[in-house]
């Protein structure tokens, strides 16, 4: 009995403390070091924050370079396919142009009407178009636990935590971490994402909740609310973070929201340099 206990303790101690030619550090010392780094990072000491920010910028650039082959192969494939579909694509584009021309006329009418209505309401146009930063997606690695992307603009461009991020005016998420040259964007489908939204003709209020799956769902709805398909969901702006009226997606009859922008297909995004009025994340 005592022999087997001795065996156990010897194997245990050896596994924890053994060092060798390729194992210059014992597992025990590295576990202690990892715990120290973890708590220093979690409790946000300034020195660790600065170091982390520097490491993040460096690692994101290396990740971008290291992922070049994986980005290149689908690109080549797409290029060959599009070359063979040029004629068909040309016809489709002509149709799209015609449609846009019609929309443009409609838009002109609507914006004139909007200006007139604003004059009537005496509202100032608070948003400036130049108040945005266009950023490239550096890393969009999918984690099962965190749905986020890393963009190539950071605090140098005036980006701060909480700023809304859009693509083609559609909301895709918010900034949760800033470094000097890069930032991390938490996507709407992440488990930690909660956005106040409004939709339908009676301006129903709800919270758009991510579950880490492709489609977020609508929660905290009025009692007995029956979902309808194809209703556009907008940010309500009640959190003081997102612009009211930013389109997000369309409802489905099971309470899910089909996002306008596929979170897995992001290449360029726009950060709206609007200072959030509340502290976030």
């Amino acid at each position: 009995m005592s022999v087997s206990r001795d065996d156990f303790s010897i194997a245990f101690r050896s596994a924890l403390l053994q060092r060798g030619a390729s194992h210059k550090f014992s597992i025990f010392s590295l576990i202690i070091l990892a715990i120290i780094i973890f708590f220093l990072d979690v409790y946000g000491f300034q020195a660790v924050k600065t170091t982390r920010s520097f490491i993040n910028d460096l690692v994101y650039r290396v990740t971008y370079l290291a992922s070049a082959p994986t980005r290149l192969f689908p690109g080549i494939n797409q290029g060959i396919a599009s070359h063979f579909n040029l004629k068909e694509e040309n016809e489709k584009l002509k149709e799209v142009i015609e449609r846009y021309k019609a929309l443009e006329l409609n838009l002109e009418y609507i914006s004139n009407e909007n200006k007139n209505l604003k004059k009537v309401l005496d509202i100032e146009d608070v948003q400036s178009v130049s108040n945005v930063v266009l950023a490239k997606v550096l890393v969009d690695r999918n984690s099962p636990f965190l749905k986020s992307i890393v963009i190539n603009k950071g605090s140098k461009e005036g980006i701060i935590k909480g700023m809304p991020v859009t693509q083609n005016k559609y909301l895709i998420g918010r900034i949760v971490e800033t470094n000097y040259l890069s930032s991390r964007v938490l996507l709407l489908n992440d488990l930690n994402s909660r956005i106040p939204v409004t939709f339908d003709t009676s301006s129903t209020q709800a919270i758009l909740t991510g579950h880490g799956t492709r489609k977020p769902t609508l929660e905290y709805l009025p009692e007995g609310y029956i979902f309808e398909d194809d209703i556009t969901v907008f940010a309500s702006g009640k959190d003081g973070i997102f612009n009211a009226g930013t389109p997000i997606g369309k409802t489905k009859d099971n309470g899910e929201v089909d996002l306008f922008v596929d979170p897995n297909q992001l290449s360029f995004v726009t950060v709206n340099l609007i200072k959030p009025t509340k502290e976030v994340f």
Binding site: I27, L30, I31, L33, A34, I35, I36, I37, F38, L40, D41, V42, V48, R52, I55, N56, V59, Y60, T63, V139, R141, S143, F145, L146, S148, V150, V176, E177, R184
Partner: peptide, 16 residues
Amino acid sequence: VVMGFPLGISSLSYLV
């Protein structure tokens, strides 16, 4: 760093 987790958490689970 790449995943956006607190530093050291993956190292700890790998070391375990």
